[in-house]
Deep mutational scan, measured.
Amino acid sequence: ELSWTAEAEKMLGKVPFFVRKKVRKNTDNYAREIGEPVVTADVFRKAKEHLG
């Protein structure tokens, strides 16, 4: 699991709890794919757009 900024964690907190774990995993995987060592708010937004 990658490191997350406080802002990205806050955004994740707005995701319904029953899918939060999956969203975190998918976002981590997306960040790795694009070469990001940390999940930022920008990476979170891009993952959301990319993953739907």
Rank of each mutant, 00 (worst) to 15 (best):
R24N: 02
A41Q: 05
D28E: 15
L2Q: 05
V38R: 06
E36H: 08
R24H: 04
F17S: 10
V43N: 01
R45T: 08
M11W: 05
F18N: 14
E36C: 07
V39W: 00
W4N: 01
L12K: 01
E33M: 15
K10F: 11
R24Y: 03
E1T: 12
E36S: 12
K22E: 14
K46R: 14
G52A: 15
I34P: 00
V15A: 06
L12V: 03
T27F: 09
K10W: 10
T5W: 02
A47I: 05
E9R: 09
P37H: 13
K25D: 11
A41C: 06
I34E: 06
V15P: 01
H50R: 08
V39H: 00
P16D: 06
R24K: 12
K25A: 12
G35Y: 04
T5N: 05
R45H: 07
W4H: 01
P37A: 12
K21L: 13
D42A: 10
D28T: 08
E36A: 15
Y30A: 02
G35V: 03
F44C: 02
R32S: 05
E33H: 11
L2V: 09
L12E: 00
V43W: 02
F44H: 02
E33I: 09
L12C: 03
N26C: 08
R20D: 02
E36P: 00
Y30G: 00
A8T: 02
R24L: 04
E36Y: 09
V43D: 01
A41R: 07
E7D: 08
A41D: 05
N29G: 07
G13C: 10
R32N: 07
I34S: 07
K10P: 00
H50G: 07
E49D: 10
K10V: 12
G13V: 09
R45N: 10
R32T: 06
E9I: 15
E7G: 06
A6I: 12
R20V: 04
P16I: 04
T27E: 00
V23F: 08
F18D: 11
A6T: 10
A8G: 02
V15C: 08
F17T: 08
D42P: 04
V39G: 00
V23H: 05
R20Q: 07
K21Q: 15
N26M: 15
T40R: 02
V23A: 06
E9K: 11
A31R: 01
H50N: 09
P37T: 13
G13P: 04
